[in-house]
Each structure stands twice: as structure tokens, then as C-alpha cells.
Design a binder for these strands. Structure first.
Length: 414
RNA sequence: GGGAGAGUGUCCCGAGUGGCAAAGGGGGGGGACUGUAAAUCCCCUGCUUUACGGCUUCGUAGGUUCGAGUCCUACCUCUCCCA
């Protein structure tokens, strides 16, 4: 493994965060003096970030831990345009209201990973709507547009993909890369930013920013990208049956988040420990050596650490305890998802399953029962007309509804 | 403006052509085997208070027909070629 002078690059490289860099030596020299001011942009396309953005968040985290300055850029402006990278369909254009709401949802999560403030080394947050929405079209064309070669833009992957597949690329999207490049330059001027990081799909956009900076006379800018994290099975990370693994607790509870990590594939455990926890590398090396059933211990550590980073130690411990009770004792832990229903009049099993979110319709619920997937208080159900009422409550005052081995929901009297 | 083509099960890709709740994949869920893993095998993957019943689905709206995803008309959206 390459040795760098800076803690920053050493840490990143040892933990597997580096995919490409525009100039390792130059960046290393800056980082060794703790003079890196780096930003990552997050577009406001959803009310919460999901685990797919976690690598980027961790990049900022390590940047700060190694003495440099992170900047979180909210894409309040760029989201109005829509990044075409890696998509063969246009994003739908979001309303300004949605963007604003999404932004508020996304912002919260950064405080868990970064220390914000106004002192040296403290993280800042800014929003590119601040400058992008004030741009004047003609000025923009003269000052910035003249530096962009359409020939080159057409050759960029994000554009080429659309053209090759004969999918539409609207002019608004075509401009995204110009805005992102401009952001980099603007941040260089405003905050002395000298590095932009991002996922490997952002490489082209970031390098454009470096070019623009040179032409517009900023200090030297750098690019660093992280690899796209896929599961060993090849699937994209962060999508499960129930949708994306959101980071905000109101969209995905700490228990469910813990479960996500607990269910990591064997082959991914070591890599994920490095990327998504802050455990020391020698400790990770030890955990990685566990084989066979013992690797479950490593998965628990991964789940605990990753959950603690996001939701705090208390929530992680509660999730772990609930998992232990539920899976190792077969009981029901307190942090299981809970749904309140009126049991006074009784409720049919089908409706109960739908209410609990374990089935999308009565028909779906019926199929699950026919397939032997459903248990009530750990007893298999074969009758889809079963009624649940207060007499079904177990000793803890709840009805434990299970679908398969992993999904459990507690029903309680409303 | 002229010409050619496309839009299918609301997760995706895709066959289909007068009898269709509509082939096949992928993805997803469940079961078996396990270690809350992977791989493998099996089942399921439109709604509906039983259903060989009813209803809703193939871009939208009409029409022909006993019957339309399939034929006709208009419209919408997208792609390509020419201007």
C-alpha cells in the first residue's frame, strides 16, 4: 500500500476510500500541512440521504479527523436542474417547495458525523442556491460558458450514455456539469476550497471544475473520488425490499438500520468495517479473520458501530438488545416496530398484516399465509380468517406478528 | 413543417397479436438447507370479506367487434432521418 505523508490520504487509502485522484502528490502535500478545505455536494432529491451517501459523509468525517476542513454543500440550486450522471432517464423536476423540505431533512444528519462551528477546522455548511440563483444568463455565458467546449461535454460519460442509447438529454440537464464546475470555483473563492470529493461517477464533473478554476485563475484545485460501493453479489448498496436504507430515524428506525448492517454478506464484512465504522484497522483485521459462524460476531460489531455513528450508542445498544431477544431468545424486543390497532372489536389476520406493513393487500397477506410465512406469537398461521383480539395479547401485552424469520411487528391496543 | 419508429403487468427489461389477468427474465417476498451470510432447490409476485365470480390493467380518449394489448380514428410523449 502506498505511503503518504499526510494522515488524511493514508487513512483514506488504508480504509479503501480512494478510487481516483487528480494529483496525489500535490494533495498529499497540502493535507500534510492540514490545509485541505474540501467539499462534497449533496443534491436535495429526497427527504433523507440513504446509505449510498454514507461513503461521502465518511470522507468528510475523516477529512476533519485528520485536521482538515470539511464543507457540506447542499445542492439547493443544482437540484433545481438535476444531475444526469448515471441515469438514462431525466430526473423529474422537483418543485422548489420539495427541494426546500428535502434540504431540511438532509441537513440534520451531518451533525452526527461532523463538528460544525466557526473556528479553524470546524465544518461549514452552505447551499449553492446562494449563488446559482443569482446568476445572470448573459454574464454567465461570457464569464463561464466561454471556457466550456461542447465537443468535450458531448464526450463525457454522463452525456454520452444518453446519446448512445438514444435517450433524451434536455438542455437543462446538459447544464448541470457547468453549474457543478462553477460551484467548485465559487467555493474556492468564498471558502478557499481546494478539493472536491465525490463518488466515482462524479469524476468528470469534478475535473471540469478543476479546469474551469485554472481558466478563471483560482488556486490549484484537486479531485478525489471514492469507489462505487457494491455488494459482493453485485447489487447496488442501500436498496432493500422496503426501499432505500434511509439515514433519518423517522424514515428508518435505528433497529431497522442495525438489521441492515447485521445482514451484511460475509464477503463484505471487512470492507464495510473499514468504510462504515471508525474502528482501528488492527481491530478490523482481527474481526476479518473470523470465519464460518464466528463471522456473525464481526457483523454484530459492524451493526453496533455503524448504528452508533448515526444514531448514538444508546440507540445502537437498544437495537442490539432487541435483536438478541428476538433472534437468540425468540422473544420480542422493545425496539421492534410497533403498530397500534383497535383490538376491542377484534381484527382479522389479513387486515392486521396489512396494518403492520407486512403485506401490501389482503391478497398479498393471504398468499403469505398460504406460503407458510406468517406467525402470530410464534405460532404458524394457516387459517386466513383468524381473528385477533385482546385474548391474543401475549404476556407482554402485545401481539407479535412475524413474517418469515426476520420481520417482526408488535401489535398493541390503540 | 415532412418522413420513419416507439410507449405492455405503476420496480425494471421484455414477448405477444382478435379469446389475455397477458410468455420469459431480472429484482423482490416466502419455504427448504444454514450462521439473521452466500450458493442451490421449490413456491409466490393485479385488486376484491369465500370464489371455476366480480372488477381493474398494455401512453390518453373515442370507435369497429359477441369479444381489443392486438384492428380503425384523433390526441399526448419520446427517438431517429429530412427541412
Amino acid at each position: 500500500m502506498t505511503h503518504y505523508k499526510s494522515d488524511f490520504l493514508n487513512t483514506l487509502s488504508q480504509r479503501g476510500y480512494i478510487h481516483q485522484c487528480s494529483d496525489f502528490e500535490g494533495l498529499d502535500a497540502l493535507a500534510a500541512q492540514r490545509k485541505v478545505v474540501s467539499y462534497i455536494g449533496f443534491d436535495c432529491t429526497a427527504p433523507s440521504l440513504h446509505v449510498g451517501s454514507l461513503v461521502q459523509i465518511m470522507l468528510l468525517h475523516w477529512l476533519q479527523q485528520t485536521g482538515n476542513t470539511p464543507i457540506v454543500l447542499m445542492g439547493g440550486g443544482t437540484t433545481r436542474v438535476g444531475d444526469p450522471s448515471g441515469r438514462d432517464e431525466s430526473r423529474k423536476i422537483l418543485s422548489l417547495e420539495d427541494i426546500e423540505n428535502n434540504k431540511h431533512g438532509i441537513q440534520q444528519v451531518f451533525a452526527k458525523f461532523l463538528k460544525f462551528g466557526h473556528g479553524p477546522g470546524d465544518a461549514r455548511m452552505t447551499d449553492n442556491a446562494e449563488w446559482l440563483t443569482r446568476l445572470n444568463w448573459i454574464e454567465m455565458l461570457r464569464d463561464v460558458g466561454k471556457h466550456f467546449s461542447v465537443n468535450r461535454m458531448l464526450a463525457m460519460d454522463s452525456v454520452k450514455l444518453r446519446l448512445d442509447r438514444e435517450h433524451e438529454l434536455s438542455f437543462i440537464e446538459f447544464n448541470y456539469m457547468v453549474l457543478q464546475a462553477y460551484d467548485f470555483v465559487e467555493l474556492a473563492k468564498r471558502h478557499g476550497t481546494n478539493l472536491q470529493m465525490g463518488g466515482s461517477d462524479q469524476w468528470g464533473n469534478i475535473v471540469n471544475g478543476i479546469d474551469l478554476g485554472r481558466r478563471m485563475g483560482t488556486h490549484q484545485l484537486y479531485a478525489l473520488t471514492s469507489p462505487l460501493i457494491t455488494l459482493s453479489s453485485g447489487a447496488k448498496m442501500g436498496k432493500t425490499a422496503a426501499g432505500a436504507v434511509w439515514l433519518n430515524a423517522d424514515m428508518r428506525s435505528p433497529y431497522e438500520y442495525w438489521q441492515f448492517w447485521r445482514n451484511t454478506e460475509d464477503a463484505d464484512v471487512g470492507r464495510f468495517l473499514k468504510l462504515f465504522t471508525t474502528l482501528p484497522l488492527d481491530e478490523i483485521a482481527r474481526l476479518e479473520k473470523l470465519a464460518g459462524a464466528e463471522i456473525n460476531e464481526a457483523k454484530k460489531v459492524l451493526a453496533n458501530e455503524a448504528t452508533a455513528l448515526l444514531h448514538g450508542h444508546a440507540a445502537a445498544a437498544e437495537a442490539a438488545e432487541t435483536a438478541r431477544k428476538t433472534f437468540e431468545e425468540g422473544a420480542a424486543g422493545a425496539a421492534l416496530p410497533t403498530v397500534n390497532v383497535d383490538l376491542g372489536a377484534g381484527i382479522g389476520i389479513l387486515q392486521a398484516l396489512v396494518a403492520a406493513g407486512l403485506a401490501s393487500s389482503n391478497g398479498d397477506a393471504k398468499r403469505s399465509i398460504a406460503g407458510g410465512a406468517i406467525k402470530v406469537n410464534d405460532e404458524a398461521v394457516s387459517n386466513d380468517k383468524l381473528m385477533l383480539d385482546k385474548s391474543t395479547l401475549n404476556a407482554d401485552g402485545a401481539i407479535k406478528l412475524s413474517m418469515g424469520k426476520k420481520k417482526h411487528v408488535l401489535l398493541k391496543q390503540a
